[in-house]
Design a protein around this nucleic acid. Structure first.
Length: 492
DNA sequence: TCGTATGGCAACATCAATCG
DNA sequence: CGATTGATGTTGCCATACGA
């Protein structure tokens, strides 16, 4: 079958040089003309070509015109996009995390069909949320066969007074996701029955927390191990290719995985023993897991599945704290420094991180990366020590010249045997490294010490640091913290 | 107090890779 | 070679917490 596409924009490749800059400055209309000039199809050659509109009235007129042309078009449309033409306007509007704010869709009404609501299933998600899903008598809508539709939550069912056996209006929201619009009340026969709500978690039988609109199993993320692990392996988290739902179920059933940290200690023979896991799949999966070990902190943190922290929030948190240690050590006040975290979310995060401590420890033990590349942590809060160290003239806030150094304002003590990237460094070289990174090195632990780098066989200094509550880092973490300065020192 | 950004979820078709 | 599996793209809706 011959396929056609219409270009709706153009983006430069990273190395397109001058063209990249030109494209970024061109009004959208001219970008499209340019693309059309290259011989690429655009909507310009159709009956619903883009037009420049200067007023809201003109926009409305064009929307109406296109709407009335819809049925006669040789292709399907679900709406009309209204865009800011000038590059400067687009920049000013910017983008949210989902879509640009300078382009907005006017949606035409979707095509509807009537079918029967057969039953309702209750699915438990990775967070323990119990979501109702309607089972429909299959019906063809706009090229695909619809058999299910989400009902969101119990209140939604009540609000719309849905009953089993009802004839319901179904459409595809955005021409994609099936959705029940409403029951067709006048088609009722009297044989319809109420929809039963679950009284205990359909997954594990535990109690249900009904205090919010979305009901949750009281065991939360622990209710559905399979869902938690799948989420952790997902594209926006650890991105482990080849680990789909079926594989996860197998691993859990075989008892090989009790949390997602177990993925990192899987052995080849264990995987080969699973159904439909041959040599190729096994080796690919193992390689994917190895890669996952080095994902940035933002993704590892996201994989934990702390409620209210998805992709965006996890990135902000990781950038702010730079290491997992710092995130875990953060109190409610510190967490609120992160954009988008207020009182409630901060408290929830603290509580969940306590629960997750064993899992995090397990991940650390498995060698999973716990740092965010390129992120510089803020100066330690509770800065009496830092202030006393006298190195925080720039921490006051007016300047900021030296504040980009990772150890700015910190007093650091080294003890024990270094490992990893720092293995070959003498104590003196370590001290140099600390100072290059903006810190002050010292040889004894006191109240004024901000960080103790403790290697193997660390002794009394470590004990003292623990007593005083001084932050302790293993050499590997420290190496991450000062990575850039490490390379510089080696060459010198 | 209210507008809004974000998280979380859901349905389906389609294609490529791999297993048995 | 047929069957199984995973990956992917697409977007509306809802609830909630943030933050001005």
């Amino acid at each position: 079958m011959e396929t056609t596409f219409f270009a709706y924009g153009a983006l430069p490749l990273p190395d397109s040089g001058e063209l990249g800059e030109t494209l970024a400055e061109l009004p959208h209309s001219e970008v499209l003309s340019y693309v059309a000039g290259l011989g690429v199809h655009t909507a310009a050659g159709t009956d619903v070509a883009p037009v420049l509109a200067a007023t809201v009235e003109e926009v409305q007129a064009r929307v109406d015109a296109i709407g009335s042309l819809r049925a006669a078009l040789p292709f399907g449309i679900d709406g009309i996009v209204i865009k800011a033409d000038l590059a400067a306007d687009q920049r000013e509007a910017g983008s949210g995390t989902r879509a640009p704010r300078w382009a907005i869709a006017y949606k035409l009404p979707a095509v509807e069909k009537i079918t029967r609501l057969v039953s309702v299933e209750w699915n438990v998600g990775r967070t323990g949320i119990i979501a109702p899903r309607a089972v429909l008598e299959p019906v063809e809508i706009d090229g695909s066969t619809v058999g299910y539709a989400t009902l969101h939550n119990p209140a939604d069912i009540t609000r719309r007074d849905l009953r089993l056996g009802d004839q319901v209006m179904v459409y595809k929201a955005g021409d994609i996701i099936p959705r029940i619009e409403a029951p067709v009340v006048h088609l009722r026969t009297g044989d319809e029955t109420p929809i039963d709500f679950p009284e205990s978690c359909p997954q594990c039988g535990s109690a249900i927390d009904t205090s919010e609109q979305r009901w949750r199993c009281t065991r939360g993320r622990n209710c559905r191990l399979v869902a938690s692990v799948s989420y952790a392996a997902g594209r926006d988290q650890l991105d482990i290719e080849g680990l789909g739902a079926t594989r996860v179920v197998q691993l859990v059933d075989a008892g090989l995985v009790t949390d997602f940290a177990d993925l990192f200690t899987l052995e080849r023979e264990q995987l080969l023993a699973l159904d439909r896991m041959g040599e190729t799949s096994t080796d690919n999966l193992l390689a994917a897991i190895e890669t996952a070990r080095t994902r940035p902190l933002s993704r590892v943190f996201c994989a934990l599945g702390v409620r209210g922290t998805g992709r965006s929030m996890s990135r902000r948190i990781a950038r702010y704290f730079a290491t997992m240690d710092r995130i875990v050590a953060a109190d409610v006040e510190t967490l609120q420094q992160v954009d988008g975290i207020g009182k409630e979310k901060a408290a929830a995060v603290v509580v969940e991180l306590v629960e997750l401590a064993p899992l995090i420890a397990k991940l650390v033990a498995a060698g999973v990366n716990m740092t965010e590349p390129g992120a510089t942590p803020p100066p330690e809060p509770g800065t009496e020590e830092a202030a006393a160290a006298g190195a925080d003239t720039e921490a006051g806030g007016d300047g900021g010249t030296g504040s980009t150094l990772p150890l700015a304002g910190m007093t650091v003590v080294v003890t024990g045997a270094m490992t990893g990237a720092l293995e070959k460094l003498s104590r003196n070289q370590m001290n140099e490294l600390i100072e290059r990174a903006g810190g002050k090195s010292s040889s004894s632990v006191s109240q004024r010490t901000s960080l103790l780098v403790a290697g193997d066989k660390a002794g009394s200094k470590r004990t003292k640091a623990e007593d005083l509550g001084v932050r302790i880092a293993v050499p590997e973490e420290f190496a991450e913290l000062v990575g850039a300065f490490l390379a510089a020192g080696e060459n010198a």
